[in-house]
Simulated scan of single mutants.
Amino acid sequence: MWSQRIAAVRGETPSPFVAAAIVGEATSLVTNWGTRGLSFINADLTLVLARLPVGREMGVEADNHVSASGTAVGSAVLFDREGPIGEQRTINLGA
C-alpha cells in the first residue's frame, strides 16, 4: 500500500520520523485484513527504522500474520522509492 505524508497536526509539516510512524500505522490494516474484513484492532506497535524515509511517498508491505485465541501479531516492511527503510510490528486484539 502506497501512502503520502499527511500532517498529524494541522498546519505542521511532519518530520520524516513522524511521517514513517503515521504511514506505519497501516500495518494493522495490511496484516489483519481477511475474508470478513478487518478482524483485529491495533493494541500496540513497534516501529524500527534503519534510515529515515526520503520523499513524500512511503509504502507498507504485509510480511507476516500469526493469530490464536483472539490475539494477532503482524509485521510489515516500510519502504520509500529508494527501498526498505524499516519494519513495523503490531499486536492486535480481536475486534
Rank of each mutant, 00 (worst) to 15 (best):
G24C: 08
G70W: 04
G11K: 02
S15C: 05
R89Y: 02
A21R: 02
S75D: 01
E61D: 04
G59V: 07
T71I: 11
A68S: 11
G37Q: 15
L29P: 03
G59N: 01
G55T: 09
S75F: 00
V48G: 08
G55I: 09
P14V: 01
A50V: 00
A72F: 03
T35I: 13
D80G: 04
A62H: 02
V30G: 03
I85M: 10
F79E: 03
V77R: 08
A76H: 01
S69F: 06
S69M: 08
M58P: 11
S28M: 09
L38V: 15
P53C: 14
T27A: 15
A50E: 15
T71H: 05
R81K: 13
T31F: 11
F17N: 01
L47G: 06
I85D: 07
E87Y: 12
R56D: 14
R89C: 06
F79T: 06
A76K: 00
T13D: 13
R51K: 11
I41Y: 11
I85H: 05
A68R: 13
I22W: 01
L38R: 13
M58A: 07
T90L: 08
G37D: 07
T90F: 04
P16H: 01
E25R: 10
I85T: 05
T13K: 10
A50Q: 09
A26D: 14
V54F: 06
N32H: 15
S75N: 03
M58I: 06
P53F: 13
V48A: 13
W33H: 13
G11F: 09
N64T: 10
G74N: 01
S28F: 04
G11D: 09
D63W: 05
G34F: 12
I41D: 10
V18N: 02
A43L: 11
R56K: 12
N42C: 14
E61Y: 08
D63K: 12
E87K: 10
F79K: 10
G37N: 08
G11M: 11
L29E: 11
D80T: 05
L38C: 07
A19P: 02
